[in-house]
């Protein structure tokens, strides 16, 4: 199917530092993180658990303020959640509204943005088709499997027509098979809309499989250990791509970065 092509947003992190203060000792979580994500690029952010990946995500989505440094989205400083950004979180059971049907969940942000009813309906339907949830619009999230719920969350994000999609461990709580399907769905979405995509994950395979580039965070406080370009061709394939020698190579490189500098 055809989609109106949108261009992705450009994200720039300049010397971003985060220190949580209060409650005893200050906690220095992120140390001078700098990175540029080009429009339409797919960037994975990996690191050992507890390194501060989620903190970084909160900063660049504007949910939490930076301590110092700057985050720019298309050159505009991010101080609160920007218009062009949408997020998908790990906890799908908590991020969807259980009192609303799938359709109403996807529609709510559009409704509150005062988008006209006809257009809302169109956007909801095309988002449902995009994520493969046809026929489930009038069901409730809790009537769906975990994978399907996460599809609803992705559809909701897409319906607001973001230029950058940010996902925090979106597939960590679904079973292995579903996970592969969702990974390919996310690649399709990026392809269809050309949106810039950021994925925070602890899974190195997933990070490499999906991304143009992998940002590796390590240390306490966390800093950028490496930015690794992934030269594997798109479209990627769950079997072929993962069997490619470069795939294993990159994966090993990242593994050593994370293990070695712990």
């Amino acid at each position: 199917m055809t989609h109106p092509m949108r261009t992705g947003a450009r994200l720039e992190l300049k010397d971003v530092t985060k220190t949580y203060t209060g409650h005893g000792a200050d906690k220095h979580v992120l140390d001078h993180i700098s990175c540029i994500v080009e429009p339409g690029e797919f960037l994975s952010i990996v690191g050992p658990s507890g390194v501060g990946k989620t903190t970084l995500l909160r900063l660049l989505t504007g949910l939490t303020p930076v301590t110092s440094g700057e985050i720019l989205l298309d050159g505009k400083k991010v101080t609160s959640p920007p218009e062009d950004l949408a997020i998908v979180l790990q906890e799908y059971t908590r991020s969807l509204m259980p009192w609303l049907t799938v359709e109403k969940n996807i529609e709510l942000p559009l409704k509150l943005k005062k988008i006209a009813k006809d257009e809302r309906g169109e956007r909801v339907q095309s988002a449902i088709i995009e994520v493969g949830l046809e026929g489930n619009g009038s069901r409730y999230p809790w009537q769906l499997s975990g994978g399907m719920q996460q599809r609803v969350a992705i559809a909701r994000a897409l319906a607001s027509r973001p230029r950058i999609l940010v996902m925090d461990e979106p597939f960590a709580s679904v079973d292995a098979q579903t996970r592969l399907d969702l990974e390919d769905l996310v690649l399709k979405v990026r392809d269809d809309f050309g949106i810039t995509t950021l994925l925070v994950t602890h899974d190195m395979d997933e990070a490499v499989y999906l991304a143009d580039r992998v940002l590796v965070l390590t240390g306490k406080p966390a800093h950028v250990a490496a930015e690794i370009a992934v030269p594997l061709v798109y479209p990627r394939d769950q079997v072929e791509t993962r069997a490619h020698p470069d795939f294993g190579h990159l994966r090993g490189e990242i593994y050593q970065l994370i293990r070695g500098k712990r």
Binding site: T61, S80, P81, L85, S95, M97, W99, L112
Partner: peptide, 25 residues
């Protein structure tokens, strides 16, 4: 808290998130 983060990310006003999210949930 997750629901509220989502509401903020969609730029709901505090009035909207009160009556559309907090009260129904």
């Amino acid at each position: 808290a997750v629901l509220l983060d989502v509401s903020r990310s969609f730029r709901f006003s505090s009035f909207q998130s009160l009556w559309r999210v907090r009260v129904p949930s």
